[in-house]
Design a protein around this nucleic acid. Structure first.
Lengths: 331, 331
DNA sequence: CTGTTAGCGCATTCAT
DNA sequence: ATGAATGCGCTAACAG
């Protein structure tokens, strides 16, 4: 492979001259520049990006770390990240964290291959996160709270969101409301559970443990938990699912058991993923400002890169999206 | 930021010794090794990945280039790519091609930042693709045919797939079949159109230009084209959409016009995206072996990296998935 | 305007 | 077992 040296040699100039010509920098005569460019063309010269990054000690790249590249991650969020990053002349790469310590994600977090990173991956341990940030990498975590200095967070007000959802159910006349949550160690899930409980307490409804089931934030998990609920015999009049995926799994379970939604039971989700307006009935849910979360996350990283001081935590609010899966309960 | 030099200094050894100790290489005494590791810990040392890549002239990373990171791209395909890449000790990063020549994608294609790349992005020009491959980068293109040496292709048998779809419609008694296609410069679209035409010819059905509309492979585009078709007054008895997204947009248009699918009109899509089994009615479509495409693409790159000779083109077959959006036409 | 030179951080060869 | 020296490919001061 041709290097800048080869180009310089063929053009009959010094390496630095070639570099200047190639980068449109410095005060290079039109003539020499063309000679260099021509030589580069002939040799199929391509610059080695890593060498130049190394020299400049800057990559101009931000990594978005996701638990699974192929997962149904929030496309709106990515859009937010991407828009702001490119608008500021930064590149964005996405990488996955599957594979634990061997994962691509860890490689990028630990080896100074990027100028900053946004983490939305529960399987990246707090330890790794902390180490990376101690290494001086500007870091914004989106899906939980990591204790430690120089770790920044953008989160959605999960507690308030689920509070609003459950209170809405109550206002529609529901008193028997189940909660099908995600993994109990999930930060988001804890907050959502708390909001659920708060709403019950406020309206003096006793929480019933038989109506507190656990899923894993997947369709499959929602399906299973819902089957379990049905098998228990006594159905609540409404269910608040920890996220939309699980609610959609639940929809499936009800369909199989010929229980009609929302006529027989009302359900509500969380997230407002794209699918929720396509399922039948369309899903009432709590919408997260995903684009804004992504946009803010990059913005913070850019601030950090400029050496500015920022808060350690930012919280964005949610919005109830009313569709067809909740029915007012008469009487 | 601490470099290996600092570590060596603190540990009181030479840089090379530190390097060996850190990489578990060479014959380093247990004692020195521990000294080095300890120093690294104290200094929060992180190796600079780019420097080491530069030295080794190898990145062990493959790029997956997508037209839009936030788009509803094929998660199965990514899974295939990811599985095979990680299984072979390669890292995978995804980057977007929006932004034309300034895009992150082009940066990765042109600057030797990765060992190989898989392109699934119509907005990466053939010129760029060719330049990159001339630069010596192993490249597999998935969504079209690029003329030139050393460019490899994995494609799905679009023509056969759409032929099967349309023939199925004909077997169900449909004679008036419209085609709502994608952008006319899309390679996939051309092939799908050809399959449609072949099926008509085989069954001696005349192609009607009024029933050949153009969308852009988006929901929006399918919606608009369908509205146009409806506005024309005379409906066909079935529609073959160039992809599922457009078919789903069409579903929306029919719903608004109170035209029932499949009672009044049958529709069929292409791709078998996740959404298609959730829309109502569920969508009959042509399934692409997406996982296999992704897996094969990486596999080819690995072969290339090992200096093996491979074919320039691979074609995988499709499968008709029958759901509820097509009704047999009586009489 | 152009050439010389000195690293960026690391892996590695060759001495010791 | 360890150290000194070299260079991966490039950029950027500095000199001319």
């Amino acid at each position: 492979m041709a290097t800048i040296k080869d180009v310089a040699k063929l053009a009959g100039v010094a390496v630095s001259t070639a570099s200047y010509a190639l980068n449109n920098n410095g005060r290079i005569s039109q003539e020499t520049k063309e000679k260099v460019l021509e030589a580069a063309r002939v040799l199929h010269y391509r610059k080695n990006g890593m060498a130049s990054d190394l020299k400049r000690t800057r990559t101009n790249t931000i990594a978005l770390i996701l638990s699974d590249l192929s997962g149904p991650f929030y496309s709106e969020l990515i859009k937010g990240v991407q828009d702001i990053a490119t608008a500021n002349g930064f590149d964005l790469i996405a990488c996955s964290s599957i594979g634990g310590t061997q994962s691509t994600a860890v490689k990028f977090l630990m080896e100074k291959r990027v100028d900053g990173a946004i983490i939305l991956a529960n399987n990246i341990s707090d330890t790794v996160t902390l180490q990376a940030s101690q290494g001086g990498l500007p870091l914004v975590v989106l899906d939980r709270k990591v204790q430690g200095e120089h770790v920044y967070h953008v989160e959605v007000d999960n507690e308030d969101g689920s509070f609003k959802a459950v209170e809405y159910l109550i206002q529609q006349g529901h008193r028997h409301i189940a909660f099908i949550g995600g993994p109990s160690d999930s930060y988001d899930n804890k907050k959502r559970l708390k909001g659920y409980q708060k709403a019950l307490v406020k309206h003096q409804i006793a929480e019933q443990s038989k109506w507190n089931l656990k899923g894993d934030f997947t369709k499959q998990g929602g399906y299973k938990a819902t089957r379990l609920l049905i098998a228990q015999g006594e159905l609540p009049s409404a269910i608040f699912y920890g996220n939309d995926e699980m609610a959609i799994g639940g929809l499936q379970a009800f369909k199989e058991s010929r229980i009609r939604v929302p006529e027989d039971i009302s359900i509500i989700g969380f997230d407002d993923i794209q699918l929720s307006e396509y399922v039948s009935p369309t899903l009432t849910t709590v919408k997260q400002p995903k684009y804004e979360v992504g946009a803010l996350a990059v913005h913070l990283i850019l601030q950090l890169l400029e050496g500015k001081q920022i808060n350690e935590q930012y919280k964005l609010s949610t919005e109830l999206v009313i569709r067809d899966s909740v029915l007012a309960r008469k009487g």
